[in-house]
Design a protein around this nucleic acid. Structure first.
Length: 579
DNA sequence: GCCGTTTTCGGCCCGACTGTTTTCAGTCG
């Protein structure tokens, strides 16, 4: 049984216990369910490796839950869960996905109306039966119907890089409002998660009601979910939910911290506060005294961290994955800064599936602030992209020479490098011969076919490609495309080990729905000392702006400038890859 | 049910909004 499935069952157990008003246990199960969902290693593998003891090492898993996971792994079933389900035989996950509907009300609906699933729920709501139950009303019934409609039309999470411009627009509109003093986007956007579930915006204002009214009357809103004095919540036509909160100036830092999250990071900070005899909430850090709380900090995030005895933690690192401990010891890495890239090592031109000429790409790269850019068009196996064969790539070199001459003539500092995004064939050999590859400045290789090979075959295929001495970089290593296609079956530990041994570079592809490597693999590379390159994978001049998301991703993976070869000057970078 | 640099027992983050109520429970983040 896979982690996702185990997580769902544990989550449902929590909700069933919640129905029965059992204290604390629901939180324990819910927490474990979240951990399991994010877990890198399959629970099955952990169990194989070290049995119950190893399962117990998963955060939040104790003796009781370890045994339950064991039962699930061994038999595919869990008696404890089935007994709970017998008592209230409902599609809990389905029903709970309706916004505003939780365990308590699901239970009530089952007992009063026999509602077991979403379709029962919709029928009952349409028939006007729900509003008649005690504790429910006409408004609740309406909300349930709207919630069901939302579920039918909404998809998965939103890709950060595809959404950010729209959020920045709204931020700008709010900034223009004279009643608004400060504006900050918080939440997962500020942490630069690769996908985001909703948008949190913070403002300070002397006239909150006005700001709230302005916010809920923005264009493109399909539903106002909440409209209060300090908090409003709207849903856009594309399903995205946005929250706006007005907070007092003296609490701005604490509020920014609180609403930036992550939840786990906040909980860790609160625990530190408690140990210091304080209380931390969105209004500030307070010292608890006899009969009142005295404010200690709150105006800025820096101040709150300082009073907690921590150095400032960048938003991208706030996941409670070791950053709090590092901040306490003053051991935080100096993560790579925005705008610090000097080059881009993966771009496509109109020689294959790019939209712009090499010269236009070069001009745009320069105005983006880069000093070098590798043209890495596809190779012949990728026929649909008009991939280059030996003859055409040799012709392209002449073109690149011309472009460089033209750039020098106008005193440009940009240098265009000869490169390739060479296909890795099914057996791990490459789509261009060594006599061509050896003449290139930058050889990137990537998988564009046979995505479904089993782990061993796929890993060996990639390792074989990496072992070619002309190869410099593995492009978009896992091949995933968010919301479209999962990662190929690659044993990343093996790949990282091989990259270390062979001195190869792994790419952080910044194209928003690739974001590949993802943060946890970046962190591993940093730990082992494998160097990376952050590339735009630009297929048009507009795409250079995506480099920002690659930097976000690298920051989330704790990468420093020394880990990213294209944050280095050209000579140093080339010297390293061609050692 | 989990967890421990105050604890192996006794805690467990905390506040806003909504809807249905006349003081609060449920849900959410």
């Amino acid at each position: 049984m896979r982690n996702a499935e185990i997580s769902k069952i544990l989550y449902e157990i929590g909700a069933f216990l919640e129905m029965q008003n059992i204290p604390f246990k629901p939180r324990a199960y819910e927490k474990v369910a979240e951990v399991m969902e994010e877990l890198e290693e399959e629970a099955g593998d952990i169990y194989q490796r070290g049995g119950l003891t190893a399962l117990g090492k998963i955060p939040g898993v104790g003796v009781s839950i370890a045994e339950k996971i064991e039962e699930l792994l061994k038999t595919g079933r869990l008696k404890y869960y089935e007994d709970l389900k017998k008592k209230t035989p409902v599609d809990l996950s389905g029903l709970a996905s309706v916004p505003g509907l939780g365990p308590k009300n699901i239970k009530k609906l089952y007992e009063k109306l026999g509602i077991k699933n979403l379709s029962d729920l919709e029928k009952a709501a349409r028939a006007g039966k729900i509003g008649k139950i005690e504790g429910f009303g006409a408004k609740t019934e309406e909300n349930i119907l709207a919630g069901i409609e939302f579920l039918k039309t909404s998809g998965s999470r939103f890709v950060l890089g595809f959404l950010k411009s729209r959020v920045r627009e709204l931020e700008a509109r709010l900034k223009k409002l004279k009643e608004v003093e400060r504006v900050n986007v918080a939440g997962s956007i500020r942490r630069s998660k690769e996908t985001i579930g909703d948008v949190d915006i913070l403002v300070t204002s002397q006239k909150p009601a006005l700001v709230m009214d302005f916010f809920v009357s923005q264009p493109g809103i399909s539903r106002v979910v909440a409209h209060g004095d300090t908090k409003s919540s709207v849903r856009l036509e594309n399903g995205l939910e946005m929250d706006l909160r007005v907070v007092p100036e003296e609490s701005y830092g604490a509020a920014l911290l609180y609403f930036t999250g992550s939840k786990d990071h906040n909980v860790a900070l609160r625990e530190i506060a408690i140990k210091k005899g304080c209380k931390l909430n969105e209004y500030g850090l307070f010292k608890k005294e006899k009969n009142r709380d005295v404010a200690v900090a709150g105006k800025t995030e820096e101040e709150v961290y300082e009073k907690l005895g921590l150095s400032y933690i960048e938003p991208e690192m706030r996941e409670n994955l070791g950053e709090v401990e590092a901040a306490a010891k003053g051991n935080l890495p100096d993560i790579i800064k925005y705008g610090s890239l000097k080059g881009d090592l993966q771009t496509q031109s109109d020689w294959t599936d790019g939209a712009n000429s090499i010269y236009d790409m070069a001009l745009k790269a320069e105005s983006t602030g880069l000093q070098y850019m590798a043209v890495t068009d596809h190779t012949k196996r990728l026929a649909m992209a008009n991939g280059l064969d030996e003859k055409r790539i040799v012709k392209q070199w002449a073109e690149i020479d011309k472009v460089n001459t033209k750039l020098r003539a106008k005193n440009s500092k940009l240098k265009v490098l000869k490169g390739t995004e060479c296909d890795i064939l099914k057996d791990g050999t490459l789509d261009l011969p060594d006599k061509i590859l050896s003449k290139l400045d930058v050889v990137g290789v990537s998988v564009h076919s046979y995505f479904n090979l089993d782990e061993k075959t796929q890993t060996n295929r990639v390792l074989r490609a990496l072992s070619n001495h002309n190869v410099d970089i593995l492009f978009h290593p896992t091949g995933r495309i968010i919301n479209k296609r999962g990662a190929i079956n690659l044993n990343m530990d093996e790949v990282i080990k091989a990259a270390k041994k062979l001195g190869k570079i792994l790419e952080v592809d910044a194209f928003p729905d690739r974001s590949d490597l993802k943060d946890e693999y970046i962190k591993k590379c940093v730990q082992v000392g494998v160097k990376m390159a952050i590339d735009s994978d630009a297929h048009s001049i507009q795409h250079f702006e995506y480099l920002e998301y690659g930097i976000s991703q690298a920051r989330r993976g704790w990468a420093e400038k020394k880990d990213i070869i294209n944050a280095w000057p050209l000579e140093k970078m080339l010297g390293f890859i061609k050692h």
